[in-house]
Amino acid sequence: MRKLLILVGALFVVHVALLFVRPSGAAQPPAAGDALDIGIVFDVGGRGDKSFNDGAYNGAERAAKELGARVRFVEPGDGSDREAGLRLLAAEGVDLVIGVGFIFTDDLTQLAREYPNTRFAGVDYSVGSDKDGKVILPPANLAALKFREEEGSYLVGSLAALVSKSKKVGFVGGMNFPLIQKFEAGYIAGVQHVCPKCTVVSQYAGVTPEAFRNPGKGKELALSQYQQGVDVIFHASGSTGLGVFEAARQTGHLAIGVDADQYAEAPGYILTSMVKGVDAAVFDAIKRTKENTFKGGIYQFGLAEQGVGYVYDEHNKALIPAAVRAQLEQIRAEIIAGRIKVPSSR
């Protein structure tokens, strides 16, 4: 017992000594001041998904470099931490609080009402509607950053159908809910626009956010689709899609990435990526905060705003013939001009 007590004493002394160590370059805790202070809360386990959440991170990093913004990132540990993270930032008086993901919708709405002088932005914020189908606008200090994913998906759907030899293309979604169904609807419409006889095999990885983090399931779905004769798969499933790429590489078929340019995940097997400009939207919101032109409301980013699009560069040029590329640009122009109506639900 005496030995144990001595051990406790020794550990304590070392600990107290270490408390006073101050390495050079140690940051001071950030305090609200004149500088532009931005806070971003990610979803549980969101950082490092190489698509959606990392897009928000990149946009904020760019704002830090170009606009001199001081950005704080918060990664929640469980569900109740989402509100706690937003509240922590709002209470510290940062200029703009951003929640990344549809799941922040309720918490953002509530906090925007409680802190009317703080600006809030929600990426993929889901705008509700009342009984008569009228849109319920978010509070005046809350910007809902929404994307017309169906427009970008329409383009990659057309591309998939034009490139497919078997006239059978696939779709792998993450969580089965309206946001991802938008991708699916646009994709199917795009396929049928250029190839009415093509068939689309469409599957989802699950019904909870877990479905966005399940590469094993993604690979399983993709393998079975390739087995059925599908030769191009578009995924909209977060890191579940990494399994789709793995299946593409293994069977020598093509896959289409989502949210960010995912070419590097499986070079040679990624036909293109349907990019969603989360980084640009986040950067834009920070910029408007700095210039004092920030306004709440619903912001839609579609093809016309270059909020969505598809990747065409030196990496995947070889996979997309010039004639196909010309046809896609034609379709893009027609969507922007409103001559093609893209459905956003099944």
């Binding site: 550990l11 304590f12 600990h15 270490l18 408390l19 006073f20 160590v21 101050r22 390495p23 940051a27």
Partner: peptide, 21 residues
């Protein structure tokens, strides 16, 4: 708890921050 706090000290120093802060 003490062991954990010491490990914490070491980690914080590795991140270049001051454990006290």
């Amino acid at each position: 708890l003490l062991v954990a706090m010491l490990v914490g000290d070491a980690l914080i120093l590795l991140f270049g921050q001051s454990p006290g802060a």
